[in-house]
Amino acid sequence: MRAQVIDGKAITARMRAEVAEEAARLTAEGWQPKLVSISVGDTAAAELYVRNQQRQAESAGVLFEARNYPAETSLEQLTGILQGLNADPRVNGVIIQRPLPDHIPVKVLQKTVHPLKDVEGMHPASIGNIVYNDLALGPCTVVAAVEILKTLPLKLEGLDVTVIGHSEIVGKPIAFLLMGLGATVTVCHHMTRSVAMHSRASDAVFVAVGKPGLVTGEMLKPGAALIDIGINRVETSEGPRTVGDADFESCGEVAGWITPVPGGVGPVTVATLMKNAVLAARMQMEHYRDAYARTEH
Rank of each mutant, 00 (worst) to 15 (best):
Q4R: 10
A10H: 12
E18V: 09
A20N: 13
E21N: 04
A23R: 01
A24L: 06
A24Q: 07
A24M: 04
T27L: 08
E29V: 03
W31L: 05
P33D: 09
I38Y: 02
I38H: 07
I38N: 02
I38R: 09
S39P: 00
G41T: 01
A44H: 13
A46Y: 01
L48F: 01
Y49N: 01
N52A: 09
E65M: 11
R67L: 08
Y69R: 07
Y69S: 02
P70I: 01
A71W: 00
T73N: 09
L75N: 02
E76I: 05
Q77K: 14
L82T: 04
G84A: 13
L85H: 05
N92P: 01
Q97P: 04
P99K: 05
L100N: 11
H103I: 04
Q110I: 00
H114Q: 02
H114M: 00
P115K: 06
L116Y: 11
L116V: 12
D118G: 07
V119S: 10
H123E: 02
P124M: 05
V131C: 13
L135F: 15
G138H: 11
P139R: 11
V142S: 03
K150E: 12
L152M: 03
L152R: 09
K155L: 12
V161E: 12
V161M: 13
I164Q: 12
V170L: 14
I174A: 00
F176H: 15
F176S: 15
L178V: 08
M179C: 07
L181P: 11
G182E: 12
T184W: 11
T186M: 14
T186A: 15
T186S: 15
H189S: 06
T192W: 05
V195L: 07
V195K: 05
A196P: 11
A196T: 12
M197A: 14
M197L: 10
A201W: 04
D203W: 02
V205T: 13
G210A: 03
G210N: 03
V215N: 02
L220T: 00
L226K: 09
I227Q: 06
G230E: 02
V234Q: 08
V234K: 02
E235R: 11
V243T: 04
A246F: 04
G252H: 00
V254I: 15
A255Y: 12
G256S: 05
W257F: 15
W257T: 10
T259I: 08
T259S: 10
G263S: 07
G264C: 13
G264R: 15
G264S: 13
G266E: 06
P267G: 05
A271M: 04
A281N: 01
E286P: 08
E286G: 07
E286D: 01
A291N: 07
Y292N: 09
H297P: 14
